[in-house]
């Protein structure tokens, strides 16, 4: 934990460990901390989490590989996760995904050569009533037509996350 690898993470890590009932319970929060701050979980990060939680390297590695959101390699600046499960498929997810693959010039699972975008196809994101849905760095965008996807990519290329009318997002009887 006092590993010189992560001086900037140490105060937050101490807080996480203090709040954990047993050190092992800090595993996921610490992995999130690393991924949020560093973008991915390196070998050094694994060792740091293992050391902080009293786990073996193998145990922490097994945890990282079990959860689909943890990354063992750097990703693009913008990570785009497109839901491909049934309700979204019926709402046009395959067309959206193909459109994004076409525009970005990569297949799902890949990162653009300039490191700007990682495109992923993922399972149900709990927005099934407003598909097709995608998350950009964890922020949901719903009812994404290919036209909206283009506008989104344009904005992201300028390094800004476009505004979303709140009503479009978390509505119950839906927006518009």
């Amino acid at each position: 934990m006092n590993d010189p690898w992560a001086p900037d993470l140490a105060p937050l890590a101490r807080e996480i460990l203090a709040g954990a009932l047993v050190p092992g319970a800090a595993t996921l929060p610490l992995l999130w901390l690393v991924q949020d701050r560093r973008g991915w979980i390196s070998d050094e990060a694994l060792a740091w989490v293992a050391g902080s939680t009293g786990r073996s390297l193998a145990q922490v590695e097994a945890v990282v590989s079990f959860y689909s959101m943890f990354r063992r390699a750097p990703a693009g600046r913008w990570v785009i996760e497109v839901c491909r499960t049934l309700s979204c498929e019926l709402a046009g997810a395959p067309r959206l995904l193909a459109h994004l693959e076409d525009r970005l010039g990569v297949r799902a699972g890949e990162t653009t050569p300039d490191g700007a975008f990682t495109l992923l196809a993922v399972e149900c994101l709990a927005s099934c009533g407003s598909g097709p849905v995608l998350h950009v760095n964890g922020i949901p965008f719903e009812r994404v037509t290919p036209e909206r996807a283009d506008a989104l990519l344009d904005a992201l290329r300028e390094d800004r996350l476009p505004e979303r009318p709140e009503a479009d997002l978390w509505t119950w009887p839906p927006a518009s």
Partner: peptide
């Protein structure tokens, strides 16, 4: 959690909270 449907199952959830798969 960090992306795993089965962590909605109650004992899977508890394993996850304890810091395991």
């Amino acid at each position: 959690g960090a992306g795993a449907y089965v962590c909605g199952e109650e004992s899977g959830l508890l394993e996850s909270v304890e810091g395991r798969r």
